[in-house]
């Protein structure tokens, strides 16, 4: 029985909460048990933001992720803060455009992906978050790629439905990054 605890952290404005929502909505589509908990308050735009997502076959206990199986970091302060929290054998996904250092721990899988640069090159500068999510899907299989469009349609607000394709493109780019 899988019980996967995910922590996504970065600066406000990087789409950290949105990235978590995509995972949560897709998990719901796959009939998993879900919780999504944001940090809230003055962190928006510039401060640090994070969100806890749990995707599970069994009921979710505490929605607060303190020992993540999957850690996504989109800035150095978040990496410094949470690296030691990762569950042994867990995975950390690092935006290597913004974070120069490597993981210090050897008992976790570290994946480096220049998401911010790739997003810029693809002409999707605001979607580095989705590029990392693509990589997370590839390496962990926590959700399936199949049916992602439906989950995105639910995550993206009604007036931004035109952005679904761009999001998909970014996720695929991350998924295919070796």
């Amino acid at each position: 029985m899988a019980y996967t605890q995910i922590l996504i952290a970065g600066f406000g404005g990087q789409g950290v909460l949105f990235a978590g929502k995509v995972l949560a909505y897709k998990g719901l589509e796959e009939e998993k048990q879900i919780s999504w908990l944001p940090s809230y308050g003055p962190e928006m735009r510039g401060g640090t933001a994070n969100c806890s997502v749990i995707i599970s076959d069994t009921p979710v206990g505490s929605p607060i992720v303190s020992v993540p199986d999957i850690l996504v970091v989109m800035n150095l302060p978040s990496f410094d803060k949470y690296e030691n929290a990762v569950n042994a054998g867990g995975s950390v996904f690092i935006d290597s455009t913004l974070i120069e250092r490597k993981a210090e721990r050897t008992d976790i899988n570290a994946y480096y992906i220049p998401a911010t640069k790739m997003a810029r090159d693809l002409g999707l500068p605001t979607l580095a978050n989705m590029i990392i999510i693509g990589k997370v899907i590839r390496e962990t299989g926590v959700i399936d790629m199949d049916g992602l469009r439906d989950a995105l349609a639910k995550t993206v607000s009604a007036k931004h439905q035109d952005l679904i394709e761009a999001n998909l493109k970014a996720i695929e780019a991350g998924y295919n990054y070796i």
Partner: peptide, 10 residues
């Protein structure tokens, strides 16, 4: 409490 208000669940 704040967690219950802010968290999303099915």
């Amino acid at each position: 409490d704040g967690t219950m208000g802010q968290m999303m669940e099915p």
